[in-house]
Write a protein that binds this DNA or RNA. Structure first.
Length: 726
DNA sequence: AGCACGCCGACT
DNA sequence: GTCGGCGTGCTC
């Protein structure tokens, strides 16, 4: 009898055995199996002759769903690695790696390609007959040159346009198998490319020299130094070899312009994977890539799982970006997985950024990665000059010092745009009673409510809680409630009142919610419709603001004195990214950092010597403090309605690890956010100087942790290489 | 995870 | 008497 050992979407670190009659399937095929009272879709992970499970309790596979495995050998290996490195249940890993449609058990068969072409009637048509329908006219015009895929038409013209033309009998839908279409390798047309400068050429040839084998590159290029051109020329070589390229970009960086740039350069279809796709659209890209029908695939974090028939190159753009680390479930880092993937596929990997993560820089400095540098800014770019502004004993108006307001006025008068950066949404981060000092707090999170004046609400930024703004203090009933601190909303309002002649806009997650809203706003900004730009993190990600000549960061102190040892690194990345995206050669920008500690060594190092120097200094500090990347961490988190349960559970976990060789055990201690959404949160940090020892200890004990009686009572997770300690 | 089983309180 | 609350435990 054949026993199939199945990975099921169940949070247990084990496989489930089923009997199977018939020809033995490949590993990586999906099956439908009975599980308790339900039926589940799982993946054949191992094949055995016999089972540990008593034969009378063994159930049979209901149905084999694939004749060909949905995972190729590379993906099987990567899943295996993920499960073993992150100590995560294999079934859950498989679940994460598979597109939703395939998880549900739909057939993994490619649909027919559908594209629109003109009917005979349309060839005789005078375009002027459609002059009242410009969109239809444009589509006809486009189709006169070439047929176009249905999905592409929907994206570019909208489905209403094609429907109208279909009804008029001017266009028709033609179907064919993707395999019958012209392959992308035959479609490549390289449009004109710029001449690479010396450093770019060196970087390109270094990458090209590694094609066909494993190699990891850190491409460190200041903003505007032409990283993308290096990508493009390396991609070109790979495509011309008939191989595929997978590019990862940060969540916010996947804009139509990014995609257009690649599509336009090579004249081929680009597979795009982002969060807004439907399950079927995602599956389609996955299938096309797996069958080698796409030359280029661009996507966010989870795109790293997309299979390729003929892989040639991996690129992780803005590799320092924190969105590459998944923060729930399987807490993998897409950049680290990319390294593993490049290794198993035997292809090169390029990690590109202006501000490398300290882990990555360390690997480059130690020679593990090849370090490619682009120090010169090409074309019309110039880095904004960075300076600190001492705000000790300075009165602040809506968070801004007087001297800063004067700078703002000056730049506005010169017809430039001004950008103000503050990492707090809302009007004010707290509402305080002036007579008794009581602060309005969210009862589920024990954190101050954020005041949102425009919404007439107090909102908790850690859970969904919100309530009307109270008139009186809930403690002493005094009517003197005052706001404490400054958020984007207050800053915008203050500036709007102070500079009534100029238009202001606020760019944060409150105002950019909704499809294309951010994109619209950015376009309007670059059309000079606004002069005062107030925003959060979002501003630093991937967008250029050539008309901005003044950037002010209001609150750098928070990050300099944070309990999170990565906060300074993130602040430096933010400052450097912002400085690189404002201004241009004939209109260089200036940047001011408001601080109470103008002499802070990290801050001084950053503004005087640049990110590269700062990062090396910060690495030295990490080394002295024995922090990552010089040590290795794993973080157990637990949350429960009672703080005692969470603590008790982690104490038992700590007891397992207390004797582990070379592993230090810190905790259990309350998490930085002690309470969230009504749950008490604790954590236990494990640290070792050797990755191997930490892994060994985890291997030895996760099983026992999982088996603890309390493990079913509290919500717990294990985060290997944690990024976020909140 | 999700579902059944089970043991207690408030309803027609 | 039963409907349903969610604690516990199991699933090949």
């Amino acid at each position: 009898m054949t026993i199939l050992r199945i990975a099921l979407p169940i949070p247990k670190r084990q496989l489930f055995d089923y009997s199977y009659q018939g020809q033995t399937p490949e590993l990586g095929c999906r099956v439908q199996v009975p599980f308790g009272s339900r039926t589940l879709v799982g993946v054949v992970w191992e094949i055995a002759e016999q089972s540990q499970w008593p034969e009378n309790k063994l159930k049979a596979v209901i149905k084999l769903l694939d004749t060909q495995a949905v995972f190729n050998s590379t993906q099987l290996k990567l899943c295996q690695w993920l499960a073993s490195y992150y100590k995560h249940p294999i079934g859950d890993v498989v679940q994460t790696a598979l597109p939703v449609a395939l998880r549900k058990g739909v057939a993994n068969q490619q649909k027919l390609q559908q594209y629109w072409c003109l009917t005979e009637q349309a060839t005789k048509l005078e375009l002027s007959e459609l002059k009242r329908a410009p969109k239809q006219q444009a589509l006809i015009e486009t189709l006169r040159h070439a047929t176009m895929e249905k999905s592409q038409v929907n994206q570019d013209f909208g489905s209403a346009t094609s429907k109208a033309l279909l009804n008029k009998g001017l266009i028709e839908l033609v179907e064919q198998s993707y395999e019958d279409g012209e392959p992308w390798s035959a479609q490549i047309k390289i449009s004109e490319k710029p001449q690479a400068n010396v450093q770019q050429a060196l970087a390109i040839s270094s990458i090209e020299a590694k094609l066909g084998e494993f190699g990891c590159f850190l491409l460190e290029g200041v903003t505007g130094s032409g990283k993308t051109e290096v990508y493009l020329q390396a991609i070109e070589s790979v495509l011309l070899r008939g191989q595929q390229v997978l590019i990862l970009v940060p969540e916010i960086g996947l804009t139509p312009q990014t995609v257009y740039r690649f599509k336009h350069r090579f004249g081929i279809q680009v597979g795009v994977l982002h969060s807004a796709l439907t399950d079927n659209e995602r599956l389609e890209v996955w299938q096309q890539s797996a069958l080698g029908q796409l030359g280029l695939i661009i996507g966010t974090r989870s795109a790293i799982f997309t299979p390729m028939l003929k892989p040639g190159l991996l690129i992780v753009d803005e590799e320092h970006d924190s969105s590459y680390k998944q923060q729930d479930g399987l807490r993998y880092h897409a950049r680290d997985l990319a390294v593993m993937r490049a290794h198993t596929e035997n292809i090169p990997l390029v990690l590109g950024t202006a501000t490398p993560a300290l882990e990555t820089l360390n690997n480059a400095l130690s020679g593990k990665y090849q370090h490619l540098q682009l120090p010169v800014r090409a074309g019309d770019a110039a880095m904004a000059r960075q300076q600190v502004f001492d705000i000790r004993q300075q009165p602040l108006e809506f968070g801004l010092a007087k001297g800063m307001l004067e700078r703002v006025a000056l730049h506005l008068k010169q017809g430039s745009q001004v950008m103000l950066f503050i990492n707090r949404r809302g009007y004010a981060p707290a509402l305080v009673c002036h007579s008794c000092g009581h602060v309005e707090q969210c009862h589920s999170c024990n954190k101050p409510f954020t005041l949102h004046k425009s919404l007439y609400k107090l909102q908790c930024h850690h859970c969904a809680a919100a309530k009307p703004i109270p008139k009186r203090c809930e403690n002493c009933h005094s009517g003197e409630l005052t706001s404490q601190g400054v958020g984007t909303e207050q800053l915008e309002q203050g500036l709007a009142d102070y500079f009534p002649a100029y238009k202001s806009v606020r760019i944060d997650s409150d105002t950019t919610r909704g499809k294309n809203k951010l994109d619209d706003m950015l376009n309007k900004i670059n059309n000079n419709e606004f002069q005062l730009l107030i925003g959060t993190q979002i501003l630093s990600k991937g967008h250029h603001f050539p008309n901005v000549t003044l950037v002010i960061i209001l609150d750098v102190d928070g990050a300099l004195f944070s309990a999170d040892y990565r906060a300074a690194e993130h602040l430096a990345q933010l400052i450097t990214q912002l400085a690189g995206r404002a201004g241009r050669a004939e209109k260089p920008g200036e940047m001011w950092l408001q601080t109470h500690d103008p002499a802070h060594p990290l801050l001084q190092d950053l503004i005087n010597n640049g990110y590269g120097h700062f990062a090396r200094y910060a690495l030295l500090e990490r080394q002295q403090a024995n922090l990552p990347p010089y040590s290795f961490q794993a973080l157990f988190k637990a949350q429960a309605l009672s703080a005692r349960d969470a603590h008790e559970f982690l104490q038992q976990v700590a007891d397992f690890f207390s004797g582990a060789e070379g592993v230090m055990c810190l905790g259990p201690i309350p998490a930085l956010m002690e309470k969230r959404q009504g749950q008490y949160r604790m954590q236990l940090l494990l640290q070792s100087n050797q990755r191997g020892l930490l892994q060994q200890a985890l291997n030895q004990h996760v099983g026992s942790v999982e088996a603890l009686p309390l493990a079913t009572k509290v919500r717990w997770s294990l985060d290997v290489d944690p990024q976020d300690f909140s």
